[in-house]
Every structure is written in structure tokens, then in C-alpha cells.
Design a protein around this nucleic acid. Sequence first.
DNA 1: ATCAAAAGTGAAAGTCATTATCATTTGCAA
DNA 2: TTGCAAATGATAATGACTTTCACTTTTGAT
Lengths: 163, 163
Amino acid sequence: MNKSVNSTQLKKIIREIGVKVTRQRLIILENILTGDEHVTAQAVYESIRHIAPDIGFATVYRFLRTLCDHKVLTEVRMRGLPARYEWAQKKHHDHLSCVRCKCIYEFENEQIEALQIEIAKKFGFKLTEHILELYGVCSKCQIEQNIPKEVSTPLQTSHVAQL
Amino acid sequence: MNKSVNSTQLKKIIREIGVKVTRQRLIILENILTGDEHVTAQAVYESIRHIAPDIGFATVYRFLRTLCDHKVLTEVRMRGLPARYEWAQKKHHDHLSCVRCKCIYEFENEQIEALQIEIAKKFGFKLTEHILELYGVCSKCQIEQNIPKEVSTPLQTSHVAQL
DNA sequence: ATCAAAAGTGAAAGTCATTATCATTTGCAA
DNA sequence: TTGCAAATGATAATGACTTTCACTTTTGAT
Ligand SMILES: [Mn+2]
Ligand SMILES: [Mn+2]
Ligand SMILES: [Zn+2]
Ligand SMILES: [Zn+2]
């Protein structure tokens, strides 16, 4: 949540993807590295406003996209909601989300991964990617059936569970 | 692909979901029942134009949505592409799609289904839904590495494979 | 068959997330 | 320092829906 990063590291990341180092990119990247997980472009844009109100959201979108193209970030799109981004260095995992409070949990399941590969093989596919999303009602929401009606804050994540 | 349906059957379906029977609904529903699988609202709209050019696409969207709400159809959303619809009476299955020619195959895997339930249970979730999509290059596209550059026709489906 | 209330319709406008345009500014290799 | 490709940001455009609303149509009750 608040890892510290120095601008040298940030510059290194930006240079390695072969684009110019700009003030806005440093700010955006730092925000992503030190901020919440599973953030939306809008959230990054807003979170940056107080320090750099001049950065347009087109720039945020563009750079997030660039970071995805270069596998620095991964785009997570759940249910037609706005795209969320996460650090791509994390180990592969899938997501489980509450349809009510929108919280997100991460999980990893080797058996499922293996079965997917098997299925693709049976169809003669060269598998490149997959999406596995589970939706349901989280344990909290099963009890407090009304209090936190809506969550406007960015989705929080627990650590990845090994199953 | 061209099962025959009489309007009595169509009317029955519409009445059972508790809405009025209209000419446009009969036409839309018949088109879905007798036409391709995994169609988009736009495709239905266009496919209907020559027989009933007066039906607006708002009506198509609205009715498809209604049919989904009443579990007559299932919405299939792949990769943020426009929603596709399929007859809900089909047994549950997931999709495997070629990133190049966009063909869709259906599969079903009980083991994966079971594992998903297990995962949800571990998190204390009441599972309501899941999305599992595999993406890759189909066997044809692995060979003919260029001929059918783009497929504009609606996605075709093979029959569901049991794995 | 008649009729009014309720439901449905279509054209058009509105949303919302994202992408494109383009005039201006900036990074940086030479 | 400079030239110029790359980047930026304001704004318009896009695409897939969704909503609005004035005008039908359906349907249950007479
Ligand atoms: Mn994640
Ligand atoms: Mn299907
Ligand atoms: Zn919840
Ligand atoms: Zn293919």
C-alpha cells in the first residue's frame, strides 16, 4: 500500500518500455506503485489531481494502456465495469468479487489452470489467455444485508490465496 | 440453425414471462430461435430489417434484456465486445474463442465447476455466477496463417464438447 | 365488440468508458 | 543549444447500451 519508490526506479521502468520520461508519467507510475490495488483510470486521475491538477485523464488512460501493452500492468475487467489495473509482476491469479459491495479477492488454483490447458489441447487451440471470474455475495454482505449499500471507494484486495 | 417454430410456441414463451405479445416480440424471438447462435443485438436488428424494417433497435435491446432477465436467454460477454445471446435452455457451458478468426467453441467441465464452488466456499462466498473464457489460436488459424484475415459473420459454434 | 388503462414502441437524446484529433509543448539525441 | 519526434491535454468522437417521451397497441373487463 505504501511501498516507497525513488524516481530512479520509476525512470528505469519507463525507459525500459521505450518511451520518454515525463513528469506526468512519473507521477502516474508512482501513484500506481504506491497506491491501492485494482484501481481504475478514473481513480488514478483523481488521486493525482491534488498534486498535479494539470494532468489530463487522456494522459492517464494512454499511459495505463501503454503500461499494459508492455506488460508492466495487467488490465482486469470485471462485468463490464471500468477497467482496473494491477501490477503485472504479481503471480498469475484470478478474481472473486462480491456483487453487492464489489470487494475483490484473489485466488490461484493450479488444478483449474491445468484443466484449462487440457481443454485447449483437446480443441487444438494454442492457448494465449484466459479469464476466470467468480461472482457471489461475500460473507459480510450475507449478514449485514443492508448497511453498506454502496461502496464508492476503490476495491480492496486481500492477499492472494493459494488453494 | 433452422428449427421451425410456430407462433403458438412463441406466444407461449412470451406470455410465460408475463409481458404482452407484440408483433415485434414475435419476430425477434423467432429470429433468435431459428437463427445463428451467439448473436449480438445488432445482428438480430439487422437480420430482422428486411422483414420488419420498422422495428427499432431500442426494442431489440429491450426485449433481449427482458428475455435475459427471465432466463430465456443468457448473455455472453467476451472481452468487452458487444453482448451476445444464446438460448438459456442449453446446458451450462463455457467458451473457447479464437483471437484471430473469432470462432467460438463451447465446452463443459465438471471438475472446474466443482473447483469453483470449492474456492467460493473457502472465501465464505455464496456463488451466484462465474465467467470462464479461454482465448487462443484455433487449429485452422495455426495453419492458414493469413487467408481468412477477418470474419465479419456472426460467430459460429460447434456443439458442446464434454470434457 | 367496445374501451380505457397499462404496457409497448421508435426516434432521438443521453450515458459512460474509452479512444481519437490536433494544436501546442516537451524530452532528448546529436 | 537545437530540431523534431514524441507527448500532452482540451475537446470531440465513438460504440454499446439505456432512457425519455409522445404516440400506439394489447388486453382484460364490460
Ligand atoms: Mn488481482
Ligand atoms: Mn454458448
Ligand atoms: Zn460484499
Ligand atoms: Zn481461428
